[in-house]
Amino acid sequence: MAPRVVVVSLASDFGCQVQLTNMEDDLLDVLGLMDLTYWQLASSGHMPDAYDVAIIEGAVTTTEHVELLKDVRSKAAAVVAIGTCAVTGGIPALANTAGLETRYATVYGGGVAVAPGRIAPAPIDSIIDVDYHVPGCPIDTAEFLRGLSRVLQGLSDHMPDQMMCASCKVSENACFLEVGTVCLGLVTRAGCKAKCPSLGRPCTGCRGIAPDANLASAREVFARYGCDPASLASSLLVYNTAAEVTA
């Protein structure tokens, strides 16, 4: 029997779900493999009570999200986090950098009741166990398909642990650091095949810090190439938590 799949949205710009609709060539094949029972972006139905796989986009930002995630975890055999918001907290977690309440006051002014039940934005796996992770802002459809294939086959999670720099060399791109431009490829999780540098833009670290990254040495590299060493941490903050960028 085809696995019953739901797609759940938390705090995000839905960019990763839009990517799913961009899989034109493969979409029909993929839909043929599953019983897609709920997808808020593409249909107006309600979340069913029983399903096998939950694909979740977005960061956790409210107590309602927390309850939803716990419910999903109790029902789904496999939970898949897609996109950097879900995997690391991503852009929504930027709100934490100067203290959540201070941020809200700055943006919305005092005395306005916004976002009831708000909590500090966090990645999904700070609330529930996540079986599979597909990072990226937005996700790469080919990587999502490889991840989905692993879900359907019951294989292990498989996020690359290495840094992006090696793939940039394979693409024979010019190195941004060598011309004094901040590029986060030397500490960012690989798997994107150096997409941005190959298009002439430095890496902004959208896949999060690689677990094997050597941040201390990277700071020295920044200094040697004329980039402010402090800019390593401040640039990494966009997609990572404060604790991670100072490690």
Partner: peptide, 29 residues
């Protein structure tokens, strides 16, 4: 302490031959 563990040295090396092997399925599985 210095090494970034990025593997760039191996990629650009004319004599580094190590490889990894993995399987990928088409969308139809």
């Amino acid at each position: 302490e210095k090494c970034l563990a990025c593997g760039a040295c191996s990629m650009v090396c004319p004599t580094c031959y190590c490889f990894d092997v993995h399987d990928e399925l088409e969308a139809d599985q």
